[in-house]
Simulated scan of single mutants.
Amino acid sequence: MRPTPPGYQSKLPKMLSSALDTAERVLEYCKNHDLLTDYDAANIEDLIARDEALSLVYVDLQDKDAYIKCNSDEDFEIGINKRHHRNRQRFSMAHEYGHYQLHRSDIKRMAVGERILHRDGEINPVERQANNFAANLLMPEASVRKALKAASNDVATAAKLLQVSIAALDFRLANLGLNNGK
């Protein structure tokens, strides 16, 4: 790579949020823009705040987790249940951000106030994609391993370090084949 001359300013546009269509690309963007947590996961709230087309609101959603809605082609709103624990809110933000990146053209047709975690085992492919996207943003494999090491393989402590729920971390560990950190 050639060195940048002093005073040079690129005329190339900054990376468009629509180019962040994989968790890996989002994490790379976060790394390049100082948007990572202490455990190298996405700082999801700051990431959402940086996108001019997104707004984040905390509302009473009763039994719903979160929603994303399209107000116009350049105006999307992520709503998070203000009653939920902060770690649950973070996963909801990441899940809805996943819909924004992966399913943006379909958001107008999605039900507002969807359920994010389907504990009855029923989940459609679109929701599974958003859940996986969120898990990869908040719990990248290297971050999970780093937190588990710092927590002496105690899942509850590692979940606190990663700022996620124990249930979310257990699910991620199973998906990574780490069998509760062992």
Rank of each mutant, 00 (worst) to 15 (best):
44 I>C: 04
43 N>Y: 11
80 I>Q: 09
77 E>P: 00
131 N>S: 14
105 S>F: 09
159 A>D: 04
169 L>A: 00
164 V>Q: 02
144 V>Q: 08
13 P>Q: 09
168 A>Q: 14
1 M>C: 12
109 R>L: 09
144 V>Y: 05
94 A>T: 04
127 E>Y: 07
98 G>T: 03
78 I>M: 08
159 A>W: 04
108 K>N: 09
101 Q>N: 14
84 H>P: 00
162 L>K: 00
76 F>C: 04
125 P>Y: 11
159 A>P: 15
111 A>V: 11
73 D>T: 13
19 A>H: 12
99 H>G: 02
79 G>H: 02
33 H>F: 08
87 N>L: 02
105 S>I: 11
153 N>H: 09
58 Y>P: 02
138 L>V: 08
132 N>W: 11
161 L>G: 11
104 R>D: 12
36 L>N: 03
61 L>G: 03
56 L>Y: 08
117 L>A: 10
129 Q>M: 10
32 N>Q: 15
14 K>P: 10
166 I>C: 04
141 E>M: 13
115 R>P: 08
49 A>I: 10
126 V>I: 12
86 R>E: 11
101 Q>T: 14
180 N>A: 12
67 Y>I: 01
158 A>T: 06
137 L>F: 03
167 A>E: 15
79 G>Y: 03
130 A>F: 09
147 A>N: 09
177 G>K: 05
20 L>P: 01
161 L>T: 04
54 L>Q: 09
54 L>M: 10
88 R>G: 10
91 F>G: 03
8 Y>V: 14
107 I>K: 06
157 T>P: 00
145 R>T: 06
3 P>V: 13
123 I>P: 00
153 N>Q: 12
56 L>R: 02
168 A>W: 03
56 L>V: 10
97 Y>N: 06
12 L>C: 08
42 A>Q: 02
44 I>H: 01
130 A>P: 04
153 N>P: 00
151 A>N: 02
57 V>G: 03
34 D>C: 05
24 E>N: 06
158 A>P: 05
156 A>W: 00
164 V>T: 04
165 S>E: 15
147 A>M: 09
111 A>D: 00
145 R>S: 01
116 I>S: 06
101 Q>I: 08
165 S>F: 08
43 N>V: 05
28 E>Y: 01
162 L>F: 09
157 T>V: 15
50 R>Q: 13
70 C>N: 07
45 E>D: 13
98 G>F: 01
136 N>P: 01
11 K>L: 12
132 N>T: 15
161 L>D: 01
13 P>A: 09
50 R>C: 07
170 D>Y: 07
169 L>C: 02
86 R>P: 00
111 A>P: 03
158 A>H: 05
170 D>N: 14
104 R>H: 14
96 E>S: 06
87 N>T: 15
